[in-house]
Write a protein that binds this DNA or RNA. Structure first.
Lengths: 156, 156
DNA sequence: TTAGTTTTCTTGACTGACTCCAGAAAACCT
DNA sequence: AGGTTTTCTGGAGTCAGTCAAGAAAACTAA
């Protein structure tokens, strides 16, 4: 899996623009995060190693933290799963999680703009974000109901 | 801290109605979950031990799982904190979490009934729950901005 | 009310996700 | 190229939570 030079250049620019130094592990991690996917640390590490040859799991954690802090990736933590990372940032979209297999997909909330950011009574809190997680069954798990892969913590 | 007999009776009924056997650890755990509070397992264990004398942490986990499965308590897992338990169930209310100290409070969402349960495109998922977590600063942390107690994972 | 059955509790080992640390290596900036 | 800053490696450690097996307790029915 040789790196696509055009993509590398684009990713290099993204890193620099965010004020981060450009390193091959960082490029590999960024390149391993395809649009519209939500990957856990292990999966990202495996993909990045496929590009680099080797990369410690610790480096992956550090890189993901730096990228998250810099706003290049977003971290989500659905109940019962390890953290997931995605590259779609800056629009506060939401997520659907399958109770059966844990698959996660993006959703745009229907109710106007910045939905739910104005609860009737916020107990004096000053809010800066509304995070919505939808729970349900993905298309695949609707037809094969008992193929439970991940815990699906909230199922009763 | 001797148990209030009236409360015990009420809790006993609640357990029986849910089809659960009545044990003193279960009563102690239920009694340790005050309305409108969100407590973690350690805190619940400490409170329950105050009533019973002793109780293993494992028993607390088991009891909380049984109570959750039976629908007597609700478990929430805000990103970056251990699981929290509350006794307000059956109304799918939402939560505000303080980024600074981790304090959690209930909120009723303002946007109509079952807000956001109809995203514009749910990618074929069949949804059964919309979970909303608001992030911000609690009243106390607005005045003392740097008193960070819990991690507050999502802060940049 | 007591035996028998089922469920629950205790203890202790274990796992997964993640963090912290110190030294080695690499990238940026003249 | 040299110096400084930042990042990466490897290993130990933490925290939340699970698993397993035997002991204890609660329900059920004679």
């Amino acid at each position: 899996m040789t790196p696509d030079p055009e993509q590398s250049l684009e990713l290099t620019t993204r890193l620099r623009d965010a004020g981060l130094r450009v390193t091959s592990p960082r490029l590999a991690v960024l390149a391993s995060l395809p649009d519209r996917h939500h990957l856990d640390v292990e999966t990202i590490a495996r993909a990045a190693r496929g590009r680099l040859g080797s990369l410690s799991i610790q480096a992956v954690y550090d890189i993901l933290r730096a990228l998250t802090d810099a706003g290049l990736v977003r971290r989500i933590e659905p109940a019962g799963s390890p953290a997931l990372y995605e590259t779609r940032v800056g629009d506060n979209h939401h997520h659907v999680v399958c109770r059966s297999c844990g698959t996660t997909a993006d959703v745009d909330c229907a109710v106007g703009h910045r939905p739910c950011l104005t609860p009737s009574d916020s107990s004096g809190f000053v809010l800066d974000e509304a995070e919505v997680t939808f729970w349900g069954l993905c298309p695949a798990c609707q037809s094969t109901p008992s193929t439970r892969i991940s815990p699906g913590r909230n199922a009763s």
